[in-house]
Nucleic acid binder design. Structure first.
Lengths: 333, 333
DNA sequence: CGTGTCGTGGCAAGCGATTGCCAAAAGTTG
DNA sequence: CAACTTTTGGCAATCGCTTGCCACGACACG
């Protein structure tokens, strides 16, 4: 506990026979102090086991060396990669990483930001539920970086799903499929729009038919209704908004005795943990989610001193790739 | 950004025509100030959009309203439940949640604690890699709560795996198995010891043979070697240290054409995401991991003002239950 | 040798709250 | 109505660190 008062910069100063300011400079601003003095101060600090107080530092300097990541839904494995990447990058830069969940609500997101605003240098908003306008407004006051969401004027790191979606279409077309169904995620979901556009455009180019159903909750449980909806369309290929939904679809199809991929091919997005060992193993569009998290932290760091000039909005686009497994196959004759 | 200086307690004080101290009291210590004054101050604060600075508060009062959770390995889904539970509980109490990974290293763990010590009210150590001695030492200086680890004198929240392990043995024995193999996790792992003891004792009671192999890395990739090791023993039942390892075993067995559960029954621990849709679906000992996370936060909160008396060490033991799926079946004749 | 420059270190004013202590105002009591 | 207690609000110190400004000495230069 804090009972045995921790050693402060003053303790070090006294012990070293210098002023507190000198200690501070020796630590933060090496060139501002004589090499010998500095060496001495450092040694004393070390001996006393001195640790700076991040709070005091932050209060004074305004820099907290902390970032917060806001994620809509903690139960969604999709975010694990992003969280991991962001945490790693932050950690490597000596930056404290705060994780918080917004329970899928834009209001909640706003509140969290407001609540943490003074304690962090910036926010990583993963799959934000806020509107573009809301984000712009927030960005006036706070340092933001978006993950898997693009908004004009705001820095973002996204895994491509537009180009990847075309690859999906090409893959399916090459297997002889003439039509596909996209099982859409939530309406406000930015990637859902991207994916659909990619699929639609790809389909148009290749002269096959693409239709969209939904929205469905992007979770395993959503797969039941989704699968049934697909069956009535008679489609031979279905692309689910994400792997969870795809897995739910696989389940329901198995229940109903529809064989995959013989009768229907199924594709997902994200390549989450488990996509390789569900049955049949899922064909899915994989992307470097952890890279996205990493990049987001970097965008935040770049923007730290944005107080003066507005940096041009940086956008990082990470390439995705199609992982072909057992859930896709030749279209039935 | 911070350019438009955020409103402070002084701004509110001036606007309301009172002293800063009054504002502070109106906010924190309502009974210390006249109801009318208080009402007025609150209104002004609201109008000015005042938000207290957590940093300043923490610096002065010593309470940070923040907890940190240290997890050895971010890639292990086992921790997701615990993280979720802890985050939720913290969030509900208005407490900021810091998440950090220790990369499986005790040293790293120690460093992280040292690094964050001034910024948090306490630490949740999930599956700590530190020795008992190390933990005692840390507990002298810091407010700790352990998850899935019991150490004398320290508060902890653990999911029972001892009793649960007996249930596993009973389940297997009832299916006619006369011997089982435990695929052990890392040697320093506390649950590994518990599980083994539970299995061994259970086996002794029921007159069946239990042997231990390992240690194996508790990940899917560890399953390959583990499965092969099992096969040479000729055992009919194998209990893996966790679901990841179990899934790896399932895979390898499938590769080698060994059918589960006809030839070998497989059991895991944790009931992670995916355990229900791998093939065959995994029989596993499920526990309320999120409860453990939640409890850990509560232990920390109880102990917040521990500066004076040492509270008796609180231990929370959460019950586990066996989820029987398709990976276990009657012993082969 | 006088003066200008540069390198160093110290002083002290914050950063934004909390809180012990005190004094003025209000309420109580005989 | 005097004496005393209780409320209530303000002053100022404090938490631990950063940083602008100043001063002092060393050094270089003309």
């Amino acid at each position: 506990m804090n009972s045995p008062k921790r050693t402060t910069i003053y303790d070090v100063a006294e012990e070293a026979g210098v002023a507190a300011s000198t200690v501070s400079r020796a630590l933060r601003n090496p060139r501002r102090v004589n090499a010998a003095t500095r060496e001495h101060v450092l040694r004393v600090a070390e001996r006393l086991g001195y640790r700076p107080s991040p709070l005091a530092t932050a209060l004074q300097s305004g820099r907290t060396a902390t970032v917060a990541m806001l994620v809509p839904d903690i139960t969604n494995p999709h975010f694990f990669g992003t969280i991991r990447g962001a945490e790693r990058r932050a950690s490597a830069a000596g930056i404290t990483f705060i994780l918080s969940y917004t329970e899928e609500s834009a209001d909640n997101e706003r509140n969290q930001i407001e609540h943490l605003a003074r304690s962090v240098d910036g926010f990583i908003l993963a799959s934000s539920r806020m509107s573009d306008e809301g984000l712009w407004e927030m960005a006036e006051e706070h340092n933001l970086a978006l993950v898997n969401r693009e908004v004009r004027g705001l820095p973002s790191a996204v895994v491509d799903s537009r180009v990847g979606s075309r690859q999906i279409v090409e893959h399916l077309a090459s297997l002889g499929h003439r039509s596909l169904v996209y099982l859409s995620g939530p309406h406000q979901s930015w990637p859902a729009g991207e994916r659909w556009r990619g699929l639609r455009d790809g389909a148009r180019n290749l002269g096959i038919r693409a239709t969209r159903l939904g929205p469905f909750p992007p979770r395993v449980v959503g797969g039941g209704a989704a699968a049934d909806a697909v069956l009535v369309t008679g489609a031979t290929a279905v692309v689910a908004h994400n792997d969870l939904l795809a897995i739910g679809v696989l389940r329901r199809l198995a229940e109903r005795g529809v064989s995959v991929p013989e009768q229907i091919s199924v594709v997902g997005y994200d390549d989450i943990f488990g996509a390789d060992f569900c049955v049949p193993a899922l064909t899915t569009l994989a992307g470097p989610q952890d890279e996205a998290g990493r990049s987001a932290v970097e965008l935040l760091l770049e923007n730290r001193s944005r107080s003066t000039a507005r940096t041009p909005d940086r956008r990082v686009m990470l390439p995705s790739h199609l992982v072909i497994r057992d859930s896709t196959g030749p279209a039935p004759a």
